[in-house]
Every structure is written in structure tokens, then in C-alpha cells.
Write a protein that binds this DNA or RNA. Structure first.
Ligand SMILES: [Mn+2]
Ligand SMILES: [Mn+2]
Ligand SMILES: [Mn+2]
Ligand SMILES: [Mn+2]
Lengths: 221, 221
DNA sequence: AATTTAATTTAGACAAATCTAAAAAAAAGT
DNA sequence: ACTTTTTTTTAGATTTGTCTAAATTAAATT
């Protein structure tokens, strides 16, 4: 139940990637970890052997339940340390990622639980990302704009970043307001416009500019 | 200027050993790191190539100035983290060593300097060992009893742990009191008695029992 | 459908850190 | 001074994680 720092970094990278796109590719991991595709292939074989990964050659891969559990613990450590560095040591939120990247590999679970208590059970890290609890459960994900959302994931509109009258008029016409549940059905790379589906309504289309200003969070109904 | 965790552990072990015995042996390091003599030999070659070590084959070795500087920074990190774990997270002093053994390898110097500030510039770790400052200078070493002292090192008596009348009578007769500067000239393994030299006085002998109860610190006159 | 391009995997090499077993050197004992 | 024992070093393997280059598979384009 103890993994090398390298394996932990792979697990974490895959976890983040599969949130955005439920099947993950070798090249995506290589880019995310600044390594080479060949190295990723090598590691995939090992992670599969350790039963952390669902993987068939050439078919893409994703973490299984155990893999997600392990990844969540690493992310928990990362974010709690980031919170510590900002709130206690006075670093800016833009300075702490690299330091947390090292601290997250310290293995004591008891230490992290004590740290969490000491920090007053913060809900999110300094970047607004949620901190998984001691059991690995992640309450809600950060607010994202629609452009960054994976396809076919039901979310709830949590905020509109550009609150001009023109924007509001448009949203009203399309029946979108805070709390609306929707999913992105299709992305058109040509103009980055999106096709959205709101429950019990016909699909609608929004432009890149509009999509960027619609912030959403996980639908935790 | 960035060394692997493994190399840092070797540097730290050698640093501690050479405090007690200015030339260090392969077997002593192997015992201290729970590794094999062959592995130590391998590492010595590397550390010498990196100019951290004075080493001639079969002749023993010790850290050079640079090696000591690097080691002091690792010890600084180790002890500051131990202090944090005890004072902020509420661990007992007997629980923190293993955790600090991992945290000490996080590389950011800025982080450690901020941690030190946050902790209020503690002088010693939870075990009473001194914390090197940001430049690597170690103020004074921990109180040791005479049995643990290296030969020919001038120290100052800082405390007498057994304060019985019999002990005090004996010390008075031998001219030893708090503040007395002395060094151990010889150790007799037969009965663990010691020959001591006090400045401007003839050598005197103390028994194991007496030596154990004389605590000393570095002579920082 | 065939061809070209892109993505992925494998083959083979390498560096770091470790080990066991054997060789070499130093220290201790006679 | 020899011999024996202990310590240290070297030789040769092994594991982990990485890489480049080549082979394979899949995807995209004609
Ligand atoms: Mn981060
Ligand atoms: Mn990391
Ligand atoms: Mn360590
Ligand atoms: Mn300590």
C-alpha cells in the first residue's frame, strides 16, 4: 500500500485527466508529466499489474476504484500542504505548487489527518480546488467554465462571470440561470461553440464567449 | 546543488558519526543506515566524485567543508519539521523522527526559512538537539554525558544529572563543577573509566558511574 | 480500399541504488 | 614474521525509472 513518488505522480496525473475525458491517452499523460510516451507505456504495464488501472494495449486506460482511491489521497495531501503553505507560512497561491509536489509524497496518513485538523478542516485549497476527506471522498469539484467541461457530464450552473445586460438577456432567452442543470453534448472546434442539453428541453447552442462565462460545478443533487 | 534523498541520508549519517569519531568507517555507516558495507563503498566513491567527502580507499573518510554544509542543511530541515510536528500538530517527541526523515528531503530553502520564522526561531528540536541556522551554523550541541564524548574534545560541564551528596563530594574533591572546561584523554574499556584533563591540572580518573552523570556541552568560549 | 500519418508499444540501453559473493587490504593474534 | 580474522572494496546482478529508435497498431486521408 506504499507507492513510489513516481507512481504517485502518474496516478495523480491520470486521475486529473480522466476527470476531463473518461478515457485517458498515453500522450496526454506524457505531456502532463513532461516525460515520453514510451515511459508512460512502461509505467502503465506496472500500474495494471498492481491492479490500479483498467488498461488494454492501444485502447486507452483509466484508474479503477482502487487507483482512484490512492490518487485521491495524494491529491488530499497536495492540497492540504498548499493550504498550509499559504495560510500558515504566508506564501502566495502562485508559489506553492512545486513545494506541495514534494511534500505530497510524505507517507504518514496520521500526519496528514493531524495537519487537516490543525488547519481547521479547510474545504478547498488556495486555488479553489476541493480537498478530499480522510476517506478520499471529494465533495465537489471546482467551478469550471463550460469550455473546460468534459462531454456528457451533468453539472449545475453556479455563477455567471460576465454580468452585463447583454449576457443576461441571452441567457434568459436560452433558459439558463443559476442552478440550471445541463450537460455539454458536442463541441465544435471550428468556432469553439457548444451544443448544450438542458433536461426536458431541446438542445441549444452557445458561442465560445458565452460558454467561457458560464461557471458550473458538479451536479450534487 | 540538489542531492537525492539517498545521498542526503548518507551525508547526514556521516555527519553525525564524525562528530563522535572524527574519522568514519564503512561499517559504522552501514549499521547506521541499515544497509550493507558494499553499498556504502559504492556511495563513498560517488560522494567523493561530487567533492563532498575526504576519502582514500581503506583509510576511512569524513565530510569536507562542503559536505558538512550540505549535511547541516538537511539536519536543519529535519529538526525544524520535528519541532513543527510536536509543537503544532501535537505529536509526542517519540513519534516524529520517521516523519521528519521524509519531510527533510523537500528541497525548498525558502520554505524552510519561512517555517523557521513561523515556529518562532526555535533553538532546539524536541529532543534537545540544536537547530542549525539558515547559514548552517550549529550553535551548540546537545548535552552529552562524558561516556558519549569523543576523545580530546574540550567541553564545558553543563549539568550533573545525579545530585546526591556523595556525587557532589566526589566532584568537589576532583575540582569539577558547572562551567568547568575539560576533555576526555583516555577511555579504559575494561571498566569504562575515563581519564580527564582539566586545564592547568594533572589528569584525573572518573568511574563509569560518575562519567555517565556529568553532562557537558560544546566549549563555546 | 489503399495509403499516409499519428499514436502507442516494444526493444535495447543507461543511470541510480541496492544486494550477494569473492577478492584485497588492514588489523589483530600468535 | 606468519597466520588468522575483520574490514573494506570490487565484480557482477537486480530493480526502478527513464530514454531513443524501431516496430506495431490505429486513425485519418486520399
Ligand atoms: Mn497544486
Ligand atoms: Mn509530486
Ligand atoms: Mn531521510
Ligand atoms: Mn531529533
Amino acid at each position: 500500500m506504499k507507492y513510489s513518488a513516481s507512481k504517485e505522480n502518474y496516478l495523480k496525473a491520470i486521475f486529473h485527466l480522466q476527470y476531463e475525458q473518461s478515457i485517458v491517452t498515453t500522450n496526454a499523460v506524457a505531456a502532463s508529466l513532461n516525460t515520453k510516451a514510451a515511459s508512460v507505456s512502461d509505467m502503465l504495464r506496472k500500474l495494471k499489474a498492481e491492479k490500479l488501472l483498467i488498461y488494454e494495449k492501444y485502447r486507452g486506460f483509466k484508474l479503477n476504484t482502487e487507483g482512484k482511491k490512492v490518487a485521491a489521497q495524494i491529491i488530499r495531501k497536495h492540497r492540504l500542504w498548499e493550504y498550509f503553505l499559504v495560510e500558515k507560512l504566508g506564501f502566495g497561491w502562485d508559489e506553492v505548487h512545486e513545494m506541495a509536489e514534494e511534500l505530497e509524497h510524505a507517507s504518514s496518513k496520521k500526519m496528514i489527518d493531524r495537519l487537516e485538523e490543525y488547519l481547521g478542516y479547510p474545504q478547498t485549497d488556495p486555488h479553489g480546488d476541493p480537498i478530499p476527506d480522510s476517506n478520499g471522498k471529494i465533495k465537489s469539484y471546482r467551478q469550471l467554465n463550460l469550455l473546460d467541461l468534459p462531454l456528457n457530464k451533468t453539472v449545475q450552473v453556479s455563477a455567471i462571470s460576465e454580468q452585463t445586460s447583454g449576457m443576461l438577456e441571452l441567457l434568459q432567452h436560452k433558459n439558463i440561470r443559476i442552478g440550471t442543470k445541463l450537460e455539454v453534448r458536442k463541441k465544435f472546434p471550428f468556432d469553439n461553440s457548444l451544443e448544450l442539453k438542458i433536461r426536458n428541453q431541446a438542445p441549444i447552442t452557445v458561442s465560445e464567449l458565452v460558454a467561457k462565462n458560464i461557471l458550473v460545478k458538479d451536479d450534487q443533487a
